[in-house]
Amino acid sequence: MKIQVFAILKDFFKKEFEFKTSVHTIADLRVALALINPEATAVLKLCRFAVQDEMVTDHYPLTGNEHVLVIPPSSGG
């Protein structure tokens, strides 16, 4: 699946990358990303995730073909 990160997460990951490890849910993906870069763990815990530009919950099932957005806490305004 394709992973796209934003804002502070670009300090920890490439802006876009292919993620080939098998994960079944968003919750699994959150843990797997933290294992890739443990320094990002605290931020990842607060992130929301979106699939095909729609927000999803931790239970959302992944097939491996998705485009997943990792969305840090908003700080607009």
Partner: peptide, 10 residues
């Protein structure tokens, strides 16, 4: 907008 919308400030 500040709390929910995917906009980030550096």
């Amino acid at each position: 907008i500040k709390h929910e919308v995917p906009i980030w400030k550096c």
